[in-house]
Amino acid sequence: MKSALKLYRSLPRYNCEAPSALTIGNFDGVHLGHQAILRRVHEQAVREHLVPSVMTFAPHPRAYFALRGKRPELIPTQISSLRDKLEAITAAGIQQVYLARFNQAMADMLAQDFIEQILVRGLNTRWLLVGADFRYGHKRAGDVALLRQAGEQYGFEVETIDDVVDAEGRRISSSELRTALAVGQLDRARHLLGKPYHLSGHVIHGQKLGRQIGFPTMNIPVPEHCAVRSGIYIVRAHGLGPEPLAGIASLGVRPTVQSQGRLLLEVHLLNSQLNAYGKLARIEFLEFVRDEEKFPDLDTMIAAIRQDAQGAQDYFAIHGL
Rank of each mutant, 00 (worst) to 15 (best):
Q117G: 00
L119M: 03
R121T: 06
R121E: 08
G122D: 03
T125Y: 01
R126H: 08
L128Y: 11
L128F: 10
L129H: 14
G131H: 04
A132R: 11
D133G: 01
D133N: 14
F134L: 08
R135M: 06
Y136K: 13
H138E: 05
R140E: 05
A141H: 14
G142A: 02
G142P: 04
V144R: 04
L146T: 09
L147C: 07
R148L: 11
R148V: 10
G151L: 03
G151P: 01
E152R: 14
E152W: 09
F156E: 01
E157S: 00
V158A: 04
V158D: 02
D163I: 13
A167W: 00
G169E: 07
R170Y: 02
R170A: 08
R170T: 02
S173C: 09
S174R: 07
S175W: 04
S175K: 10
R178C: 08
D187Q: 15
R190D: 07
H191F: 13
G194P: 04
K195D: 14
P196D: 15
P196R: 12
Y197C: 06
H198W: 15
L199Q: 09
S200D: 06
H202E: 14
V203Y: 11
V203G: 12
G206Q: 01
Q212V: 03
I213V: 14
I220W: 13
